[in-house]
């Protein structure tokens, strides 16, 4: 199985494979984003309490979900890189970090914009908001660590260790609204108790789920594009890159 992995996860083969995949996934992203945004911004009804401000949710919630999902991808890739020395995994971790940081930033900013009219404050040091802010710092710390070490192998090892230690923050973010009294409301969708009976009306839930899938595919597209750039950069002295550049 590892021979198989080593053959197809070789940076060179993956570079070509990603090149084929990107246009298709990009098309899916555009279609899903168009449907999701149209449904969310025009078709979905206003909320009985929040009025039109509820529409911020269609960006905020998928961004917050992605901020945690991307971190798990980052930590997972870091672990694979540590254990199997798979170059592609190390590059995946490096390529994913700035995307995850952007999603985290987006979640924090949209949450803040929603918080001012709804709660009455831009920011509160409650457990959910604080742990999400720590996630942003983890991403930034990972990126800084990668940039500070010149040797890519050592940079990948140090980054992977930091990413794995930071995994402890992910369940804290998710369960913070259940464990502690927070200003942030409890989970409406991703709670086990609410399967089959989500606290969101279907007319608001569907656009949210479409946007969540759109964000996931968007992440895949950007990750593949960044990975291709990363592969070219790290393999810049090899023959095959020289061939690709010429043609």
């Amino acid at each position: 199985m590892f021979d198989f992995l080593h053959k197809y996860a070789s940076p060179r083969n993956f570079y070509d494979f990603a090149g084929i995949l990107i246009p298709w996934l990009a098309g899916v992203t555009v279609v899903l984003l168009a449907i999701g945004l149209y449904q969310g911004l025009f078709l979905a009804p206003p909320d009985y309490q929040q009025g039109q401000s509820v529409r911020i949710m269609f960006i905020h919630v998928p961004a917050a979900w992605m901020s945690m999902f991307v971190y798990m991808v980052l930590a997972g890739a870091g672990a694979v890189g540590l254990i199997w020395h798979l170059k592609l995994a190390e590059m995946t971790a490096a390529a994913a970090a700035p995307i995850g940081a952007s999603f985290t930033f987006l979640a924090l900013v949209t949450g803040s914009l929603w918080g001012k009219p709804m709660w009455g404050t831009w920011w509160a040091w409650d457990a959910r908001l604080t742990s999400e802010l720590i996630l942003l710092f983890l991403y930034l710390g990972f990126m800084a660590l990668q940039a500070a070490i010149d040797d890519p192998k050592r940079a990948a090892r140090a980054g992977a260790l930091l990413a794995l230690i930071g995994v402890v923050n992910i369940p804290v973010i998710h369960f913070s609204v259940q464990w502690w009294n927070t200003l942030h409301q409890p989970a409406s969708v991703s709670s086990i108790a609410k399967i089959g009976a989500p606290a969101i009306h279907p007319s608001l839930l569907w656009p949210l789920l479409i946007m969540a899938i759109a964000f996931t595919v968007f992440f895949a597209v950007v990750l593949l594009m960044r990975l291709r750039a990363e592969i070219l950069h790290r393999e810049r002295y090899t023959h095959w890159v020289a061939e690709r550049i010429k043609s």
């Binding site: 009804p45 206003p46 909320d47 009985y48 309490q49 929040q50 509820v54 949710m57 709804m118 709660w119 009455g120 404050t121 509160a124 200003l183 409301q185 409890p186 989970a187 409406s188 606290a199 969101i200 009306h201 007319s203 608001l204 839930l205």
Partner: peptide, 18 residues
């Protein structure tokens, strides 16, 4: 000196709420 509204996890259109 500060009052914050706490939102719950329920989201629905006004007709359903009525």
């Amino acid at each position: 000196d500060q009052v914050l509204a706490k939102h719950d996890e329920k989201y629905m259109p006004p007709e359903v709420a009525n």
